[in-house]
């Protein structure tokens, strides 16, 4: 799942899909319109090659395979979650999006359409900016590949590793 993040000093806790779209396409330029300070909005996005950007553009901005939504020309492009966190965490008037596992105290994840970005909300499908991470095999998995998949689906791996940054597969409950 992807969290929309702002600087902790930004007194904003929720933005609607229309507001997000206005901000990320460059139509809205000042925080004042959203109840924030009278400051320019610094939009931070990921580069073209980023999967995070692809999902964000689709699920938050409403892009489809045939209809693209162009990000603001003034948006800062960064090429990793780490840099994203660094920029948003240190720029008081920045907004960006980040893979949920990277959220820490330096940045503030905000709600989207009044839904908080939590594992529970993502698992139930309430929080929409999320995706499945797939494993692909050539034909039916067998041998070591099968073992690897079994390991990833095991409770130990799901509890110890996945739960730290992602949503466990058995928690996913999207109607």
């Amino acid at each position: 799942m992807i969290a929309i993040v702002v600087n902790p000093s930004m007194p904003i806790t929720n933005l609607s899909d229309a507001q997000i779209k206005a901000i990320f396409t460059g139509k809205a330029k000042n925080w004042k319109a959203f109840g924030g300070p009278d400051k320019q909005i610094v939009v931070v996005i990921r580069d073209q090659a980023s999967g995070t950007r692809e999902i964000f553009d689709k699920k938050a901005l409403g892009a489809t395979d045939t209809k693209v939504v162009e990000s603001a020309g003034s948006a800062i492009q960064c090429s990793s979650n780490g840099v994203m966190r660094e920029i948003v965490g240190s720029t008081s008037n920045a907004i960006g999006y980040i893979s949920f596992g990277y959220v820490n105290k330096n940045i503030k994840a905000i709600s989207f359409n009044d839904v908080a970005p939590t594992v529970k909300n993502a698992a139930t499908g309430l929080y929409p900016i999320a995706r499945y991470l797939h494993l692909f095999t050539k034909g039916e998995a067998k041998g070591a590949v099968k073992g690897y998949i079994d390991f990833m689906l095991s409770d130990k791996f799901q509890n110890d590793i996945v739960a730290r940054e992602y949503v466990k597969i058995k928690d996913v409950n999207i109607k």
Binding site: D47, A72, G73, S74, A75, I76, Q77, C78
Partner: peptide, 14 residues
Amino acid sequence: IGNASQATASLLQP
């Protein structure tokens, strides 16, 4: 540089 796609002559803009 910020890698924004805009044309800008402002020193502080990406």
